[in-house]
Design a protein around this nucleic acid. Structure first.
Length: 698
DNA sequence: GCCGATATCTCAT
DNA sequence: GATATCGGC
C-alpha cells in the first residue's frame, strides 16, 4: 500500500545500486514484506493450514545474499494494528475471507487450478509465521525486533537512533515517517534502488518540487492524495495535492482553498483523518532496543503530552498495573517488561496474554499428538472405559470392544474418522506454475547466462555501480541445515537439497550438544529454541479458519488431559492378537499421516514417531512459565529516567556513542530471548519433528 | 494533453 | 507497486 504514485514521482532521485554498496552496514528489513513475498510460493499450504518451510527458505536465501555482502540484516516485524488502521485491516481481512471461501469451494469442487489463484489472494501473514522466522534468526544471532505496532515506524526509529544505516522496504510510507535511506526493489541479483532523502533537494522544479516542502507539508501532501491513514480528497492525486500544499501553509487553509474553488468535495471526516494520520506518522509507539522501553518515534512536544486524540492514534500501551492496552500518558505507567517480551517475539503482539507459537511447531505438535491419539484409541481402556485412563503405549493390545467402536460410529473412533476425512480435503495439489526466465529489472541481464558481465548504469546523473553485480548463485541453507537436522540412521535418508553442504551424520542426542554447524552463521552452543509451544493446543484464539477442526480439538484436548502417570499397565495378551493390533495401528497411522497434510507420498512412519517425553515435557513446563518471575522489571524502571531523554531525537553528534553500544544492546536482547530453560524445548526436539517429514519425503 | 481512476500483472517456486 | 488503459476536464 503506502502512498500510491509517490515512487514514480521520485524517479529522478532513484539510484540503482548493488548491495555491495552497503558492505559493513546494518540494514533494517521489513519482515512482513518478505513474508508476503515468500508466501506466494506456499499460498495453498498456508491457507489449508499445512506445514511448509518455503517461506522460511526465502528468508534463508535472502539472508545468505546479504551476508555475502557483509551486510547485517536487522529484521523488523509488524506488531499490533493501530486504531487508525483497524478499518483498513478489517476490510482486508474480509476480502481474504471471501477469497478463502471461494478457494475452498473451488478446491472441493475439483477445480484446483482456479482454487490455487484464489489461495494466492487469501494469504494472511500471521505472527506465528513471523515466529518461525524469528526462531531461525535467533539460532543465527541475527538481530530482530517485533514492533509494538507498525514496522515502518519502528524501522525509521532504528535509523534515527543510528542502529541501522538504511531500510530495505517496498513501502514509500517510510519516507513520510522520516526515513533517510530507503532501499527498494531488492532482487535476487542483489540489485536495488536507493532513495536518499538528502536528494529531495534535487527535486526543486517541475510539477513535483518536493524540495519546497517541509516535513509538515510532506505529510499534508500524502494525506490529501490518500495514504494508509487517510482516504484523501477524491480526484486529488499527488500532483494536484502538491499545488495546494505549495500555495497554502496549513491544512486548514488548503481545505478552505479547495472549498472556495468549488470543484472538489472534501469528505466530512477528512480533517479528522488528517489529524490522526499526522500524529501516527510522527509519534507512533515504537520499541527502543537500547533503553528497552516503549517510546515514541519522535518526542511528543509538551503541549501535546496530555492530548487524548494523539494517544489514541499512536498505539495503546500496556498499563503496568491494569495489564490492559489503553491510553497511557505517563511513560512510567507503561509495562515495559511485557512490551519487551512482545518485542522479542515471546508474546503474541495482538494479545499479550498469549505466548507466540512458531507456526510450524504448532502444526507439527498437533500432527504428532494426532498419531499418539490414534495409538491411545487403539489400546485397551480401563474398567470405566475412560479415554483418559487408556495407555498410550503403541504396543498396547487392540481389544475387540475397541474394534467395535471403530465401526459403530458413535465412539471416539468415528470422531477420528471424521477428522481424517476432513483432512483428506487438505491433500496437496501437484503441479507447478510455469517458470519464466528471470530478467534483471535494472541491468537487463538474464539470470540464465552462465557468467554474465554486469552492464553499467547508463544514466549520467546516477552513481555507477563500482562492483560487479551479484550473481544469484550463492550458498543456500535448507531448512534442515538451519535447524541442524541429523540424518536418520535407520532410514539412511539424506536431506534433499541441491546447494546444501551436507552435515555429518549424527544421532539425535549428539545433535542436542552440537556446537558447530555447516551453516554460514554461528549457532550458540547452548541454543534451545525459545519458543514456548502453544500453551493449549486446542487454541481458541487460532484465527485461521482452515485451522483445527472441532474434532481435532476434541481429540487434542483429550490428549492433553492424558497424563502418563495415570496409566495402568497393559494386561498381557496373546502374541497373535498383538501382531494383529500392530497391523491395524500402522494402517491407521499411515492413513492419518497420508491425509494429514504433512507431506505428499507419506509412507508409514511408525519409527519416526517422536518420543512422548517431548510433548509431555512441554505441557508440564507450561505451568512453570507462567510462574517465572519477571527479573527485568527492575532494570526497566532503572532505565526509566535515562531513556526518557534518550528517546528524544538524537543529535547527529550523539549517534556515534549510540552505535558503540549497539552490539551490546543486541547481545543483551538475544541473551534475554534465549534459553529461559523452563519454557524452551530443545533443538533436538524441534529437529525431531522435522525429521519425521524428512524421512517421509523419501 | 494532463491527471486520476481502474484493471491487470508481478511477486515466489 | 508498476504498468496500461480509459475517461473527464
Amino acid at each position: 500500500m503506502g502512498v500510491s504514485g509517490l515512487l514514480p514521482q521520485l524517479k529522478p532521485i532513484q539510484n540503482p545500486v548493488s548491495l555491495a554498496r552497503y558492505e559493513g552496514e546494518t540494514l533494517a528489513i521489513d519482515g512482513y514484506a518478505w513474508l508476503h513475498r515468500s508466501a506466494h510460493s506456499c499460498a495453498m499450504e498456508l491457507a489449508l493450514n499445512q506445514p511448509t518451510e518455503k517461506y522460511l527458505q526465502f528468508f534463508i536465501k535472502r539472508i545468505s545474499m546479504l551476508r555475502h555482502f557483509k551486510i547485517t540484516p536487522f529484521f523488523v516485524f509488524d506488531g499490533d494494528s493501530i486504531q487508525v488502521k483497524k478499518d483498513t485491516e478489517l476490510k482486508r481481512a474480509e476480502k481474504r475471507k471471501e477469497n478463502r471461501e471461494k478457494a475452498h469451494a473451488l478446491f472441493t469442487a475439483g477445480d484446483k487450478r482456479l482454487a490455487y489463484d484464489f489461495f494466492q489472494k487469501c494469504v494472511s501473514i500471521t505472527p506465528e509465521m513471523a515466529k518461525c522466522v524469528i526462531d531461525y534468526l535467533q539460532i543465527n544471532s541475527i538481530p530482530y525486533v517485533v514492533a509494538p505496532y507498525e514496522a515502518d515506524a519502528q524501522m525509521v526509529y532504528l535509523e534515527k537512533q543510528g542502529i541501522v544505516q538504511g531500510i530495505i522496504s517496498e513501502d514509500s510510507d517510510l519516507l513520510i515517517f522520516g526515513c533517510t535511506r530507503l532501499i527498494t526493489k531488492l532482487n535476487d541479483n542483489a540489485e536495488c534502488i536507493e532513495i536518499d532523502r538528502r536528494n529531495f533537494e534535487r527535486l526543486n522544479e517541475g510539477k513535483f518540487p518536493l524540495s519546497k516542502l517541509s516535513e509538515d507539508q510532506l505529510r499534508s501532501l500524502v494525506c490529501l492524495s490518500g495514504c494508509d491513514y487517510t482516504s484523501g480528497v477524491p480526484k486529488v492525486g499527488l500532483v494536484t495535492a502538491m499545488k495546494y500544499v505549495v500555495k497554502n501553509r496549513t491544512m486548514e487553509q488548503m481545505i478552505l482553498a479547495i472549498k472556495r474553488e468549488g470543484k472538489l468535495t472534501v469528505p466530512a471526516n477528512f480533517y479528522e483523518e488528517y489529524e490522526y494520520a499526522n500524529f501516527a506518522f510522527q509519534f507512533q509507539r515504537v520499541w527502543c532496543p537500547l533503553s528497552e522501553r516503549l517510546v515514541t518515534l519522535n518526542v511528543i512536544p509538551n503541549e501535546l503530552q496530555k492530548n487524548q486524540k494523539l494517544f489514541n492514534c499512536i498505539g495503546h500501551a500496556i498499563h503496568k498495573e491494569l495489564k490492559i492496552k489503553d491510553i497511557v500518558f505517563d511513560f512510567e505507567d507503561v509495562d515495559h517488561h511485557l512490551h519487551k517480551r512482545i518485542s522479542l517475539g515471546e508474546l503474541n503482539p495482538h494479545d499479550f496474554n498469549e505466548p507466540l507459537a512458531n507456526r510450524e511447531h504448532k502444526l507439527r505438535l498437533k500432527s504428532r499428538s494426532m498419531v499418539m491419539t490414534i495409538d491411545k484409541f487403539c489400546t485397551p481402556k480401563n474398567a470405566t472405559g475412560s479415554v483418559n485412563g487408556a495407555s498410550r503405549k503403541p504396543t498396547g493390545t487392540f481389544l475387540a470392544r475397541n474394534s467395535q467402536s471403530v465401526n459403530n460410529g458413535s465412539g471416539i473412533m468415528s470422531k477420528l474418522e471424521k477428522a481424517l476425512n476432513k483432512r483428506k480435503l487438505s491433500a496437496p495439489v501437484s503441479g507447478n506454475p510455469s517458470k519464466k526466465a528471470v530478467n534483471s529489472q535494472f541491468f537487463s541481464r538474464e539470470k540464465a547466462e552462465p557468467e554474465p558481465e554486469p552492464k553499467p548504469v547508463v544514466r549520467a546523473d546516477l552513481e555507477p555501480i563500482s562492483k560487479p553485480a551479484y550473481s544469484a548463485n550463492f550458498h543456500t541453507d535448507t531448512f534442515a541445515d538451519v535447524f541442524m537436522l541429523d540424518s536418520d540412521p535407520e532410514s539412511e535418508t539424506q536431506t534433499q537439497s541441491t546447494t546444501v553442504t551436507p552435515t555429518a551424520t549424527q544421532t539425535e542426542t549428539q545433535t542436542e550438544t552440537q556446537t558447530e554447524t555447516q551453516i554460514d552463521t554461528e549457532v550458540p552452543s547452548t541454543f534451545v529454541l525459545a519458543t514456548p509451544p502453544p500453551a493449549n493446543l486446542n487454541d481458541k484464539n487460532d484465527n485461521n479458519d482452515a485451522g483445527t477442526t472441532e474434532e481435532e480439538s476434541e481429540i487434542l484436548s483429550e490428549f492433553e488431559e492424558d497424563k502418563p502417570e495415570d496409566k495402568p499397565e497393559d494386561e498381557p495378551e496373546a502374541a497373535i492378537q498383538k501382531k494383529e493390533d500392530n497391523k491395524i495401528l500402522s494402517a491407521l497411522r499411515s492413513k492419518f499421516l497420508h491425509t494429514g497434510g504433512l507431506t505428499e507420498n507419506r509412507p508409514t512412519v511408525a519409527k519416526a514417531r517422536p518420543p512422548l517425553r517431548n510433548v509431555t515435557n512441554i505441557m508440564n513446563k507450561k505451568e512453570q512459565t507462567s510462574k517465572r518471575p519477571s527479573n527485568s522489571l527492575a532494570a526497566a524502571s532503572r532505565n526509566a529516567s535515562r531513556s526518557a531523554s534518550r528517546s528524544a531525537s538524537p543529535s547527529p553528534t550523539a549517534r556515534p556513542s549510540v552505535r558503540r553500544t549497539m552490539s551490546g544492546a543486541i547481545n543483551t536482547m538475544h541473551a534475554a530471548s534465549t534459553p529461559a530453560s523452563s519454557n524452551s524445548i530443545s533443538l533436538s526436539q524441534f529437529a525431531y519433528s522435522r525429521k519425521i517429514e524428512t524421512v517421509t519425503k523419501q
